[in-house]
Design a protein around this nucleic acid. Structure first.
Lengths: 206, 206, 206, 206
DNA sequence: CATGAATGAGCCTTCATTCAT
DNA sequence: GATGAATGAAGGCTCATTCAT
């Protein structure tokens, strides 16, 4: 699927990038605080450091901001994840490292992930599809890591089980944010990671 | 915490109950389709089968509708769950049955649960607290079932593990709705239940 | 001009009178507190001791309540004034007594007079005319008393002066209510009366 | 007391002033015709020559319009009055001129004064206080003129009498508007002024 | 006669978007 | 490119009035 083209009146690609970065940063903080719908375009413009007129030089509609935000977050989560993913280990160990890395990324980008997670549904259909595809790519990344384990005979899983496991891992990451009101009261990230890994893996080893 | 009193101009308690049931039903279908913020009070009234004026005879503000919806869903999930929970089995078997029952309830109330799940954050602070508490009660219910298993020596878990497991089970139920775009394409409820039970339990047995 | 007919669904004239008295009493207290426009018909009904449905059995529209209130107040002011007006004196003495009596009535009915005074303009045209006519009758009453003085040669005034004096007296009564935030801080009714009489009369005597 | 700050989204102070002047002009004509409560914000916007959206760029709430109107009128009355007040005369003559000037101003601003006079009570509490204070300033202005006469030995009055006289003069000005339905039928402004001056002064001279 | 639930026109206000400067 | 004043559709909510019981 094509990356959605967010329209801009401005030619200078460099400038577009810069302005949109300001925008995303401002928007995330506002969305975190009051959600997408309760945030006005004026507020976004102000928080981004420019006028409402300028905001609309770089987007076509308010929803584009949300799209940009979601897109950027996915990108960053993926990039950071790749960075953390040392490939020097293998088998279950690699899976554990991957999960821990994923959780770490999520924790670092708590607010962003939560926003993305809660507001995605407000995207217009086209954008939603695209973002959902990004989510599936994330899923595929995780799935691949699991699949590697299986192929290395480190664990034995059917194809369906692999898919399910990937979903589970993904959600366990997300729930660290959307259930933080309960989880982060009881566990540190490390505890959370260890416990979840235990639940995830125990019995999976040969 | 006190149940939030939603104000009504109408005195007949019976009627209030009836109208609010209409309201909740209408609202859920709309919230499912377009979300809380994109749904107008006029639409809610119409879908509920009465006028905008009448709607406001039974609520004080739009947010009250959301609260009523969330409250009703929790209540119904809990009631149905209790109904399904046959107490004739014990140990791990009982846990499995409970999880299956819980998943079944979630599946039956898909739309409702999804709405509640996605829109809860739009509640005003007081109402949010109350609803979050309901969520914790659900958590406690699951936790108790797990705890029973542990006390029967059916499984061995630390206190923290019990808590985490309860969270996991709860979320695994919810994700059936909020990831349905992926999960329900690949799995039937039965498959989903079986697979999740397998992941949940394998290795937990003595 | 005809007294405006306020429509009623009820036949029993006795009952109409009773209910409307309740209504006027309730309405005055509410209008005093929040003004005609900010008072709802529901509030009037409640304060009057019956339901909104019953209210509309005795009036045709909200404005009728205001009309009824204004009419009743004029009536009462006039009645009380007549009562106070001992006819045993004559000349300037009688004028002074009349003014003092008038001021006393105003003071006793402060709230009512103020309401009438401030809300009259909200009456529908027809009713306004009628009420304004009542005001003119009041004017005439005062004028007559002044005119008597002149005819008795107690004071010398042209016809125009008589008219103006009547207006002045009337307004001096009303201002005791609508400037009470200033006047009643500085003067008692007695002081106010004495001072105003002095201003009114000094120099008028032969 | 601080002048109430009416909020505006627009930054250009010059523009704010201009728009608010349009607004006040439009609002006065509407309030005169139908009163504050019966006038809608849309009507105000239209009459002012801009859209409802623009109206709200210059005020925070409908009541602000009323406040702006009242404030502006007081200001203008005071300014005009100062202008008319030639200081070349003294004693009773000066008082007479002042009263005549005041009446003239009132007559010129009939509608405005009447509006202010009748709708003041609809102001929110804070604004009401502020406007009442303006009224007291007016009072003080008149009082000072009277006091000057007394100090010049032109007339002899106790302190209380001075205060009362100021109130009387003020009200005699206002009544020219709120009793115009009667007074302006019978008198021209000049006649009214002469007669009132006569009543006011006769006997006050040494 | 009394009641009060139902109605919907209409109000105030917000805010995404445009466009002249 | 940047600005921010202008716009008006649309939303939440109120309340005078009606009418079935």
């Amino acid at each position: 699927m094509q990356k959605k083209k967010v329209p801009s009146m401005v030619k200078d690609e460099q400038l577009i990038k810069k302005r949109r970065e300001q925008m995303i940063k401002g928007a995330v903080s506002l969305f975190t605080e009051k959600g997408f719908h309760r945030t006005t375009t004026r507020e976004i413009a102000k928080q981004s450091g420019f006028s409402i007129g300028t905001l609309y030089e770089y987007i076509g509609a308010k929803e584009d901001v949300l799209y940009l935000v979601c897109d950027a977050i996915y990108e960053e989560v993926r990039d950071r994840l790749k960075q953390y993913l040392g490939t020097n280990t293998s088998g279950v160990e690699r899976l554990k490292e991957a999960v821990a890395a994923y959780f770490k990324v999520i924790d670092e980008m708590e607010d962003e992930v939560l926003v993305m997670y809660q507001e995605t549904k407000s995207l217009p259909k086209e954008a939603l599809k695209y973002v959902l595809q990004k989510e599936m790519e994330m899923n595929d990344m995780i799935e691949q890591i699991v699949r590697d384990c299986v192929e290395e005979d480190a664990i034995a899983l059917t194809n369906e089980e692999i898919k399910m496991l990937a979903h589970n891992i993904l959600v366990k990451g997300q729930m660290w944010t959307f259930r933080r009101w309960a989880l982060q009261k009881e566990f540190t990230l490390e505890q959370y990671t260890q416990l979840q890994l235990k639940f995830l893996l125990t019995g999976l080893k040969r």
